[in-house]
Nucleic acid binder design. Structure first.
Lengths: 258, 258
DNA sequence: GAAATAGTGTCTTTTAGACACTATGCA
DNA sequence: TGCATAGTGTCTAAAAGACACTATTTC
């Protein structure tokens, strides 16, 4: 018998099926504490959360109303969770064309009081200025950025505390093991700007000490000096600008960087 | 109004919901081409696949019958995909207590002809001897191991070609960037055994050259020599045995191994 | 002794780490 | 001139890379 005939016999609702499939997005940005002239930035890793409205668009009381949550929403039948995440992010924050990546699935029974709902979690990395025009829409009564240490003091919806803990661990790892820092920085940046980004997730002395890092950045194969181009935005002395190139990154634990 | 009251009003079937949620498992093992006395092993990365039965347990023609597929199955409402993967693996292959890890979600519309079915994919790393008593059960008419290069010549079910490509890329990365090689090796191993595992996924000279790797293994913080303990299973000259310890692994691209 | 695997000796080059010093330009 | 940031000079130690050499055992 053919596959087509087999399909006709197949009863898609024979088994208990999930009550929903959602995408959640942990949007990270890095905020400079203050932006003084001739100062290298002091940065903090922030996470964007929304406050769930008391009522939904049809006026009924919302589930987990008033709690803080990751932006996200139900995935439609004609899209992937990744596409859904991109769409939700654009709708809810106006942010488009951003580095977005899957990092986990949350499917523990009972995680959502509404039923058997599976969440596909993504993280996004967004430079500060891209979030300037964020607005609360739809189910959200507020949109805000919180330093990651502050987030766990909030009343968080569903199992978002777990998801956020995982997201923070993943982004720390990604910042140190890949060139993800690129997404937090302008095209052209100084050593102290890259340093500030990395210091949000590590305190390793190779990065924390200015002299060591200023020297180090010149030997990294995936970063190149922009010949003769300097800026004074971080200091009075004109500072060399760098950019990421496309050199492949290798982080094997068994052999050295090539 | 309370959360409880809001829940009562909530109609879980208001939206179109998925038709199923499955777990798939890419079970990798490493096979030694031949096991001669006093020989270091020559190894190949293999993947375990099942051949889908022509009929299901109730005698009806199966979907994608006769094609090769990753083991897996539908996730129940009272379990996570991870638990489902562990269960299926035990049921289908008799393999228990194995390193199992989520690596991706497959949810592209149309990926499964039966409907809107989301697959949560895992990989497993299993030493050769743990698969000795594998048997075809349930929906599988055959269980077999294939060298990864051979897998893509097979007629694969659903979108399993995509899932397998991702799994292979993930395992290559994990073997080089984490101590995952441990799961392919006995507790105590020689430098040439670890070398053989790593050579299944890289040809870097730092690993391929005997003298270099024999020296290197002694400097790796996460591997320790077992003082005075030797074996002759890989050579006539007694060879030093090593084991993995619990030292943390660091693979930052910005600073050196500590 | 030949063959095969497992190393070590030794030299060169590169990288890492420490810490003092110099460079630039604004107030 | 002082101050703050951005570097460089210089030394030492460790690691990486190359290649010849030695060590142990079986046949």
């Amino acid at each position: 018998m053919s596959n087509e005939q087999a399909l006709k016999q197949y009863d898609v609702k024979k088994y208990r099926t999930p009550d929903g499939y959602t995408s959640d997005i942990a949007v990270f940005t890095i905020l400079s504490d203050k932006t003084e002239a001739f100062k290298p930035p002091a940065m903090k890793l922030n996470l964007m959360l929304i406050k769930r409205s008391m009522t939904d668009s049809e006026g009924r009381t919302n589930i987990e109303a008033g709690k803080w949550a990751l932006p996200g929403g139900f995935v439609g039948e004609t899209e992937t969770a990744f596409q859904s995440a991109q769409r939700e992010l654009k709708e809810e924050t106006g942010v488009d064309r951003i580095h977005l990546e899957h990092f986990g699935v949350y499917d523990k029974p009972g995680r959502d009081p509404r039923g058997w709902i599976i969440s596909n979690a993504h993280y996004a990395i967004v430079p500060e200025h891209r979030l300037a025009d964020r607005v609360a829409q739809d189910d959200a009564s507020e949109v805000a950025l919180f330093p990651v240490e502050e987030v766990f003091k909030l009343d968080l919806a569903f199992d978002h505390e777990t998801i956020i803990r995982d997201a923070v661990a993943v982004i720390r790892k990604k910042l140190l093991e890949t060139t993800a820092a690129k997404a937090f920085l302008p095209e052209e940046f100084t050593y102290s700007e890259l340093q500030a980004v990395l210091l949000t997730v590590t305190d390793d002395t190779a990065i924390a000490l200015d002299a060591a890092f200023a020297r180090k950045i010149k030997t990294l194969p995936f970063i190149e000096e922009i010949a003769g181009k300097k800026t004074t935005r971080t200091s009075k002395k004109p500072t060399q600008l760098y950019r990421f190139n496309d050199a492949p990154v290798n982080s094997s634990i068994y052999y050295a960087k090539k």
